[in-house]
Amino acid sequence: MTEEIISLDHGSGGKVSHTLFSEEILPLFENFELSKQDDGATLDIEGTKLAFSTDSYVVDPIFFPGGNIGDLAVNGTINDIAMCGAVPKFISVGLIMEEGLPIKDFKRILATMAAAAEKAGVKIVTGDTKVVPKGKADKIFINTSGIGVIPPDVNVSGNNAKPGDKIIVSGTIADHGITILSSREGLKFDSDIKTDSAPLNKMVHSIIQSGCDIHVLRDPTRGGLGTTLNEIASQSCAGIKIDEQSLPVRGAVQGICELLGFDPLYIANEGKLIAFVPEKDAQKVLEIIQLDEFGKDAVIIGEVTAEDPGKVFLQTAIGGVRIVDMLTGEQLPRIC
C-alpha cells in the first residue's frame, strides 16, 4: 500500500476497502472464520453452529426519509446474521455520542431501535454508552453486534456459487444510498424516495424452511450490488452474468443517478438480499421472496457461468456486453 493515511475511500466498501482488509487486517488476525470473508462469521461451539457479526453506523444525516441511524443499525446486523443462513437472536448496542446531541434525538433513535428489534423478533441484551466532547464525533455513532443460530444442514456462504445458479435480487436497488445522498445538505431533490432499511430475517427463514438448495445469500449494502457480485464471483471462482433490463431500479432513483453520474449498481442497499439458487429451485425461491413484505419486487437478474471466473458481466439493454468491476472508491458527483 502506498497510501500513508486513511482516506474516505478506505470506508467505501469497494476495492480500496478490500485492499485494506486483505493486506493490513487479515494477515494480523489470520484464522479460518475471518478468511471466509462472509457478512458474519460462522462458528461451531460444541456442536452448535452460530453466526456472529458486527457493524458500525456513522451515517450522515442521522434522520432520513424512511428511518434513522437507530433502526438502520439494528436491521443491518440482523441482516448480516441472516445472510449466514442463521436465525438472529441477540444483539448488543454500543453508542458513541457527541456532546450536545439533543436528548429528544437520543430518545427517538433508541425508540426506533427497540421497535426494529421487536419487529424482527430479536432482543437487545447488552450495550454501552460513551460521550465524547463536541466536535470529536458527529452527533452519534452506533455499533451493533449480534448472534444467531444456524439450523443444521444449512451451508450458505459467498464461496458456494455454482455455474447454472440463478441470481435473485429481492427488490429495487440503490434506494438507501440515494435517499441518504439526497437528504444531505445542498442536494434538495423533491422526491418520494425513502430508505429500504428492513429486517430480512423472516424472508431468509422462509427461504431456508422451504428445503430449497440455497448456495449464497448476501445483502448488497455498502459498495452496492456490483461490488457484492464481484465479491461472490471472486470467493466462488465463478463468472457472473446479469441482464441490465432485469435490474429493478425506481424511476426517481434512476433519475437522480443520471443527474449525478452515479451507477445504481454501486449504491448502497439496506433492505435487499441476493440469493444464488440452483435453477431447479430458482422459481420456487423467487415466489417465496415475493410473498415476503420486503420482497414484492424480487426478480431473477442473472446467472452464474463457468466462463470468466472472478468476473461479472452485464448484458446491456442495447445488446452489448460490458464488465462490472468492483467499486474502487467513493463515487463522486461529476462536473457536467
Binding site: 431533490f189 422526491s191 424511476g251 426517481a252 434512476q254 443520471e258 439493454a317 442495447i318 445488446g319
Partner: peptide
C-alpha cells in the same frame, strides 16, 4: 421525479436496428 424519456432512448429493438 422520473426520467421516463430515458427509456425510449435505451430501447433494445431500436438499438439493434
Amino acid at each position: 421525479m422520473s426520467l421516463k424519456y430515458v427509456e425510449e432512448y435505451r430501447d433494445g429493438d431500436l438499438a439493434r436496428h
